[in-house]
Design a protein around this nucleic acid. Sequence first.
DNA 1: CAAATTGGTTACTCTGGCGTAACCTTACGC
DNA 2: GCGTAAGGTTACGCCAGAGTAACCAATTTG
Lengths: 216, 216
Amino acid sequence: MLARVSGTPTYKRLPRAVREQQMLDAAVRVFSRRGFHAASMDEIAEDAGISKPMVYAYLGSKEELFVACLHREGTRMTEAIAGAAAPDLPADERLWRGLRAFFGFVGAHRDGWAVLYRQARGSQPFAGELAAMRARLVEVVAGMLDHALRAEGREAGETELEVAAYALVGATESLADWLADHPEADPEKTATRMMNVAWLGAGQLLRGATWRPPQG
Amino acid sequence: MLARVSGTPTYKRLPRAVREQQMLDAAVRVFSRRGFHAASMDEIAEDAGISKPMVYAYLGSKEELFVACLHREGTRMTEAIAGAAAPDLPADERLWRGLRAFFGFVGAHRDGWAVLYRQARGSQPFAGELAAMRARLVEVVAGMLDHALRAEGREAGETELEVAAYALVGATESLADWLADHPEADPEKTATRMMNVAWLGAGQLLRGATWRPPQG
DNA sequence: CAAATTGGTTACTCTGGCGTAACCTTACGC
DNA sequence: GCGTAAGGTTACGCCAGAGTAACCAATTTG
C-alpha cells in the first residue's frame, strides 16, 4: 500500500461530462435494484467507480441525483416516442406507432426505466416530476383523440378526453410493468396486444374481433 | 405537572382490539400524507393518541405496520368488490358492477386507499404484497373474460387473457389515481367513463359510440 | 515554469428516527 | 384482597447513511 511511487494514480482522470454520465448510469442501476430509500450514495459511488464526494460535487444531493436520473431517462423516452410520431396519419396508425415505440423503449431499458418509474410514483418529492411527465403524455394522447374526433365532425368535453387519455396511458404503463417483469416477452407483441384492447375494447374482443398491425 | 394525584390517569385504558384499529387508522392517515419513508413512528403513535412502544408491542416494526395497513385496506376493498359480483350476469354487466363498486370504494377512501396503494407500488418490501393483491384481481378479470369467451364458443391463450386483464386493471388503477386527485369528481361517473373506454375501445369511441349504464 | 483549475481521495461529523429497557398502574380472576 | 397479566409510560441506545472538511495531484493556461 506504499504504492503509487510516482505518476501511477490507480484511477483514471476523466472529464466531467463523462463522469457525470457514468454516475447517472450507476445511479439508475442502483436505484433500480434497491429502490430510492434503500440505495446508498456509497453504493452508487462505488458502482460508478468513483468516490462519494465526487457524486456530491457533480450531481448534488441524493434527491437531486434521483431527479437527474428521472430527467435523463424521461427525456430519452420522450424522444424515442416523438421520433415515431407522424401527425398526419390516421389515429389508429398514430396510436400504434406510439405504442410500438414506447414498448420498444421499455423493453430495451427494462431495469432502467420501468423501475425508476415505479419508484417515482410513490414518493412525494418526485411525484411532481413524474406527474409532469405523465401530464405531457396524457395531453398528447388527448390531443390525438380530439384531433381524430374533430376530423369526423364530432367533439367531446375536455374532461371526457382527459379521462379517456388517462385510462389509455394507465393501461399502457401497466403493461410496461408487465413487460419489465417478463423478460422473455416481446415488446412488439405486447404493443399489439395493448393496441387490441385499447382500440377495440373488451366488447369487440369478446365478439372475436382482432386488430392487426398494418404493413406486415 | 405533579398532577394525577389519585386514580386520574390522563389516558384511557382500552382493550387491545380497539387500540389496534385506532393505530391502524392513524397509520393509514400518516402514511398517506407523509409517505412511508417520511412517516415517523412517533407521529403515528401521537396521531393514534398512544405512545410509541405500544405500537411496537401490538403491530411490530414499521414495515410490519405498513403491511398490516395494506392488508386491512386491501381486504376491505376486495370485500366491497366481491359484494357486487353476480357470476351469472352478462360480461358487460359484471364488469360494470365491479367497476362501480371499485370506484365507489376509492371515492369513499380517497386518502386511505389510493395513497397506500401508490406508496406500495414503489418500495420492494411491499411490492410482493401488492403484486399478490393485483394478481388476484387480474385473475378474476381474466376469468371473467375467459368465461364470456367460452360462452360464445371461442377461446383465447392464457397470456392473451392475462395481458388483456392486466391492461384493464392498469387503466382502472390509473383512473383511481385520477379520482383520488380530483376530489370534486363523481365516482359513479368515473366508473361510467372507464366502462366506455374499456368496453368500447378508442376505435368505437372515435366513431361516436357510447356505452350507458343499464337500468337507469 | 508558476499558478490556477479541475479531477480526485480519505476520513470524518452528525442527526433522524427505529427499536427497546425498565418501570408504573389499573383491572380482573380466584 | 391479592397476584398476575394487560395496558401504559418515559427515556434512552445506537447506527446507517447523508453530507462535508481538508487535502492531494494532474493538467491546462498565460
